[in-house]
Amino acid sequence: MSRRPFPTQRRHTLFFLDQIRDFAPVHLDTEVDATALVAARRRAKEAGARRSVVAHVVHAAAGVLARHPEANSAIQGRLEPELATYDTVSAKVTLDRVFDGRRVVLATVIPELERASLADVQAHLDRVAAQDPDSSPEFAPIRALRALPWREALDRFRSAAGQLELRPAVTGTFSVTSLGHTAVDGFHSVGGTTVTLGVGRIADRPVARDGAVVVAPVLRLSLTFDHRVIDGAEAAEVLTEIKDALEAVR
Rank of each mutant, 00 (worst) to 15 (best):
I20N: 03
F157P: 10
T240H: 11
E31Y: 00
S90R: 07
R102E: 15
A119C: 11
A236L: 06
P69L: 07
P141C: 15
V199K: 00
P25C: 03
V229R: 00
V238E: 03
A183Y: 13
L106S: 12
R205K: 08
R50A: 09
P168W: 01
H188M: 09
A34T: 03
H68I: 02
A107E: 12
L79N: 01
R156G: 10
R50S: 05
R3A: 12
L166D: 12
D120A: 13
G200T: 03
D155Y: 13
R78E: 13
E80V: 11
E237F: 07
S117G: 15
F23T: 02
E247S: 03
A212N: 05
A49Q: 06
A66H: 04
H27E: 04
G77Y: 06
L219R: 01
I202H: 02
T240E: 09
I110H: 13
A208W: 02
E152I: 13
E112P: 06
S175M: 08
R102Q: 15
H188I: 04
G172R: 07
T182M: 09
A144D: 15
G180Q: 09
G192E: 00
A183D: 12
F16R: 03
A130E: 13
T108Y: 13
V26N: 02
G192F: 00
E241P: 04
E80G: 06
A71M: 00
G63W: 06
A153M: 12
V26K: 04
V32M: 03
R11W: 08
P25R: 05
R250G: 10
R228N: 11
A153I: 14
R97C: 15
D22K: 07
E237P: 07
R228A: 14
D120Q: 14
D155R: 14
R201H: 06
A62N: 04
L246D: 00
R42F: 00
A203I: 04
L219G: 01
R250D: 13
V213P: 04
T173E: 10
S52R: 02
T85G: 07
T85F: 08
H124P: 08
L246S: 10
T193W: 01
F187A: 01
S189I: 05
R42L: 10
S159A: 14
R143E: 12
L28S: 06
